[in-house]
Each structure stands twice: as C-alpha cells, then as structure tokens.
Amino acid sequence: MEKRGWDDFDPGVILFSFEKDKKVTDIATTEPENRPYSQSNSFSSDQASGWRVEKPIFKQDLCIDCQFCWIYCPDMSIISRDKKMVGVDYDHCKGCGICVEVCPTNPKSLLMFVEAKEEAEALAEWPEKKKEEK
C-alpha cells in the first residue's frame, strides 16, 4: 500500500469500503466476519490499537449480557452476537475504559489491566464482590 504511486489510484481520491469486485446487498445485517472488507476499510487496520496503555479484559461468567458495554463502546470493539457479549476486539479497541465504567455487575465483568497483562493472570486475580454501601 505505502509504495503505491500516482498512477495506481482510482481517480478522485475515492475509497471503497469493500472489495471492488464484490457487490454488497444487505450490509446492515451482515456480520463483520462475512463482509468483504477492502484493504481501504479501517476495519482492516489495527492502527489505533497501539494507543492503548490499558486494555479491558472480559470475565464471561459474571456477565449478564445487559449490552451497556456494546452500546457505549466508541470503537465498535465489543463483540456481541445474538444478544450475548462474546468478547473484546483488540484490533480496534483504543482502551478508553468506558465499557468498564458502564458495566453494572458486582464485581464488574470487564476490568482494565495494563496492556501487557496475560488474560489468564488477570482472570485469576479478579476482585471479589464488593459489599453494598449503606
């Protein structure tokens, strides 16, 4: 991509979301894994994931599938399928931590850990349920 010269471009600085030879018909209902994303689609890149200092880690057994993390994620990085929270898309997550803030379970089903943290290690040191403050 970086080596493309002036003679390689589509005229008009145009970018196509999907592979040029694929016609999309019902993109609004096609899951990402089934979409013919082009190399020009930012989905194909992980350029902003390197901004992360901390990352959210998901502990599934605590999750009640309320979908607050899904709706409030600014980076389309909460993977939900069939009304269930499945996990975090680390290619696109910028590590803002909104998902953790809005998580209503006790203890939270999503917590921020330093980027280098191993998932298994994080899950092992998950905090206990906090007592309700009166």
């Binding site: 993109i27 096609t30 350029q47 979908q67 709706i71 980076d75 389309m76």
Partner: peptide, 20 residues
C-alpha cells in the same frame, strides 16, 4: 438493548477519533 445489540455497525473501528 439486547435486541438492539444485534445491529451490525456500518461505522468501523481503527478510526482516529480520541479514545472515549
């Protein structure tokens, strides 16, 4: 919200907006 979460975004990640 559960039903809404079945939506498939037509706006993609790895954009350059600030975190949060």
């Amino acid at each position: 919200l559960k039903e809404f979460s079945k939506s498939v975004d037509r706006f993609e990640g790895s954009n350059l907006l600030c975190p949060g």
